[in-house]
Design a protein around this nucleic acid. Structure first.
Lengths: 329, 329
DNA sequence: CAACGCGATGTATACGTATACACTCGTCAA
DNA sequence: TTGACGAGTGTATACGTATACATCGCGTTG
């Protein structure tokens, strides 16, 4: 292994000078700097990340926790996060799925293996998270929300998003409608459902119990739920799903029953992932600005790393109904 | 920051004993071990990753380079990789897209920031890669292939996969067929195209120049290419795309022209990503066992990390034509 | 011309851990 | 009874870097 000492020896300077040649801020003459850089080049020297981390207590690495990387929403967020953080000189380590993700990520902060963590999903059991925040761990929540937490959060206005869907359906005469949620423990799904159902109730058409089901945020489960809806005695006219992936499942259920949207059923999703706009889905959905949320979240985290005392911010983005072929007159 | 010295003090032992209490292999009496672990618990001690890395020259972190995380093929591979490596006690850092990904990943090995790297994409300009391999860097190639490289590789038999498609089409009377490749520089796309076109030629129906185009591995570009095909004087009867994402683009082009597969055009993809089986696509495609490839690649890398001298292995998986609704009688 | 200041560099040290080596003390065989 | 032995623990050190402090030399100013 080539160390800064080797470089120092070849360049005829001290090890400290080699270190200075690399930190652009340090005072060093142009001549010796050039000499050192040349030696580095010759020896193909690369500083040791672990040693640097021990001295500086920085790793230039950010952790990201995602619930399910195969849900197209997360790759889009990750795409934006990796681009943004990469540009800022950070690496990205991801924790996917597994039940221990949150714990592992928080531990990685304690280990000083990452400088901070972005959660795009969060169990509501926030005891450990709360403890970490009290220790001053740099943490940002994107997408999901946890109330009463002194923590930076970037979310979209899911309540309003859900309500807009209700308005739209009522306005077009769809009064018997169903809701396929993700899971009760996810704030996103809860808020979207609540916003939606409250507004339906306000309009005088509450969502009946038999048309309120959870779809586990997955295509497969939502497919089955929609299948049940279709084949029950009194099917809904329209279905609102808590994310696009489940809307695709619902659409597929409609089609595999030899029926079609919007002719036989209206199907509406949430997220507006890229493939929702594809011709084969042409999905009416509520757009949340996921890439913008990712960008903002990334910078919030970097800011917090650099000024830990700053008080926590909540940024909320508005959502917008995107009307496409799966639900329109 | 709590260090092992603090734990040692509280437990009334030396710092070395604390270190020993953690490495299960070391000899230490059960009594003191318990005492130390209790102290660790009390102080919420967590070892410093950077310091450990400096001593052990291990980080328990693996890098993964992907071409485009929004292409559903990669999330599936990443899903499997993260599960597998997580279970083995490794973290996963990803490099996405950006032109510098390969360079960054190789540098991370030199920095000892990762223990090894998995490339799921590779530019054919392999000079830097070759140099890294000569230094003994633990590297595994999944998916793409680079000839004449002393490097572990896991690929699928793309040549045969392409040929099988040709056989299938000919067998069903489709003689005027097009090919939408990804890019000339990708071995996957090249092999699939070559296997396909050679076999078409053998059957006496070579793919004409005007039906051979590149689709940049993207839905959007493939959509445009297929659009051109459809609207030219003498359209193809069928189109084979070098991956599923492009096949979706082609299918969408067919549909947005008010036509349908398989009635008007046959569309065939490659990969068999999960969504290819969805009702809305029902895509005929060539399945490569991507999750299995990921698993095997992960273990090859771990093996190589532990025994660097082992000579390089090439594992090739067979592919299988999955016949669905987008291309069948 | 002397004193001062400042830029440039070297010296020494600390970051937190793992481990080679030294040491103690009890056990057991001769 | 003594010597050897080994398990258990402490002491000392090294990993590779960043930086506080000391030093040196040169230019500037009064």
């Amino acid at each position: 292994m080539i160390t800064s000492r080797d470089v120092a020896q070849l360049a005829g300077v001290s090890q400290a000078t080699v270190s200075r040649a690399m930190s652009s801020s340090s005072r060093i003459s142009a001549a010796t700097k050039a000499k050192v850089l040349a030696a580095m080049e010759t020896l193909e020297y690369v500083p040791h990340a672990g040693a640097q981390a021990m001295k500086t207590q920085r790793t230039n690495t950010i952790g990201v926790v995602v619930a399910d990387i195969t849900n197209p929403f997360y790759p889009e967020v990750l795409d934006e996060l990796t681009r943004e953080l990469d540009a800022a000189g950070y690496r990205v380590v991801i924790w996917n799925a597994g039940g221990g993700s949150h714990h592992d990520a928080l531990r990685a902060i304690q280990e000083r293996a990452v400088d901070g963590v972005i959660f795009t999903t969060a169990t509501e059991d926030s005891a450990e998270l709360q403890a970490a925040l009290k220790k001053g761990s740099p943490i940002v929540l994107i997408n999901r929300r946890i109330d009463g937490l002194q923590c930076d959060q970037v979310t979209s206005d899911n309540l309003s998003g859900g309500a807009v869907v209700a308005d739209y359906l009522i306005q077009h005469g769809k009064t018997r409608v169903g809701f396929i949620g993700g899971s009760e423990s996810a704030s996103t799904s809860r808020d979207r459902g609540q916003g939606f159902m409250n507004r339906m109730t306000e309009h005088g058409y509450p969502v009946p119990d038999d048309l309120l089901r959870q779809g586990g945020f997955s295509h497969e489960q939502s497919f089955r739920v929609m299948n049940d809806f279709i084949n029950q005695a009194n099917p809904p006219q329209a279905v609102f799903c808590a994310n696009d992936l489940m809307a695709f499942g619902a659409l597929d259920a409609v089609r595999s029953n030899g029926q079609a949207a919007p002719d036989d059923f209206w199907v509406i999703g949430y997220d507006d992932v890229e493939i929702a706009a594809w011709q084969s889905f042409d999905l009416t959905t509520v757009r949340q600005p996921s890439r913008e949320m990712a960008r903002v979240g990334a910078h919030m985290l970097l800011d917090r790393i650099n000024s830990p005392q700053m008080s926590a911010q909540h940024v909320v983005f508005p959502c917008e109904l995107i009307i496409r072929g799966s639900a329109r007159d």
